[in-house]
Design a protein around this nucleic acid. Structure first.
Ligand SMILES: [Mn+2]
Ligand SMILES: [Mn+2]
Ligand SMILES: [Zn+2]
Ligand SMILES: [Zn+2]
Lengths: 165, 165
DNA sequence: GATGCAAATGCAAGCTACTTGCATCTAGGA
DNA sequence: TCCTAGATGCAAGTAGCTTGCATTTGCATC
């Protein structure tokens, strides 16, 4: 998809067709609000909170907090987002679940796909994405030790970023 | 101090000397409320939330929610507890940081020490403790990839327990 | 054993981060 | 174009802490 008219500006009024498709197949109607919400996740490859997203959106067009909230819930149900929480932080974070690294990045993919984890600076709060994941061997040990069938895991690191050391 | 009058009942009015010591050296005054709070962590080796702890305590003597809250904060500052949060749950969880496995368990140690992780049943909510931890090699990869110095991590698993499968 | 004060407690009020109800509007299939 | 399930704005409600303040208490000191 080396489409004509290369996108110079991340246009909030149009989403990559693959994502529109994902929304529709998840029974989620595509509206201007939702294009803006998803657009944010597509340009800024960072975790968002309800409030940070709302603030970011309202620097442009107005959009109600509760609508952002409902968009996030709908996207999560449709499997586009995952949520996580961090110790010491009150808010819920959301990050985009990218469709498992097609061999050719479309647009400004910043290098991680689908499931991944984060590290947060304990000083400045900067969040960085990590492509590392829990080794399969560890998952096996967890299942053996607990008798549970593991379906999901969440791993967060805390530390000092390059600037704050 | 192999004191006379061996403890037959886990008496909420007395704490193991090692723990009283930890409290005092952390500048935390030892009071009846705090003995009860810490006592709960000592008998039930499970994560507690502010509210679940408050409920459990008020089946015995009354104790204010805000006092439990402040006890938890003090204990955390003193390094006796760690807190964590789970995706999809609103409350903060606290679990005891046991002093790294002395060669002889005192009392009813249920088998894990200091830092560890948990798995939660997505059906019934049962929480199980895990002695597994993130491999050192993974920590190294995280530091290399992110440029952060890692100081802390949190790992939670979700799944189906033996009963719920 | 009495004293003094920093720290803990109870109680109430306040706050943040959602979460929901409802009347109105609209995306998108027929 | 029409119809209706679902989306939106607005406002009110709730959970889970969090803090202020007057009073009490642990405990170091005398
Ligand atoms: Mn990410
Ligand atoms: Mn535990
Ligand atoms: Zn930093
Ligand atoms: Zn279960």
């Amino acid at each position: 998809m080396k489409d004509r008219e290369a996108k110079k500006i991340p246009d909030r009024e149009a989403l990559p067709p693959a994502w529109e498709e994902k929304l529709r197949s998840g029974k989620v109607k595509v509206t201007p609000n939702r294009r803006r919400v998803l657009g944010r996740f597509l340009d800024a490859d960072a975790p968002w909170t309800l409030k940070s997203l709302h603030r970011a959106l309202n620097e442009g067009e107005a959009c109600e907090l509760s609508s952002v909230y409902r968009a996030l819930s709908a996207f999560r149900t449709a499997g586009l987002l995952e949520e996580f929480r961090l110790p010491g932080k009150r808010e819920t974070y959301y990050s985009l679940l990218r469709p498992s690294a097609g061999r050719r990045g479309q647009g400004k993919s910043s290098g991680h796909d689908h499931h991944h984890h984060h590290i947060v600076c304990q000083d400045c709060g900067t969040v960085s994405h990590l492509d590392v994941c829990v080794p399969t061997a560890l998952l096996g040990r967890v299942e053996d030790a607990s008798g549970f069938r593991v379906t999901e895991h969440h791993l967060e690191f805390k530390g000092l970023c390059g600037a704050c050391r």
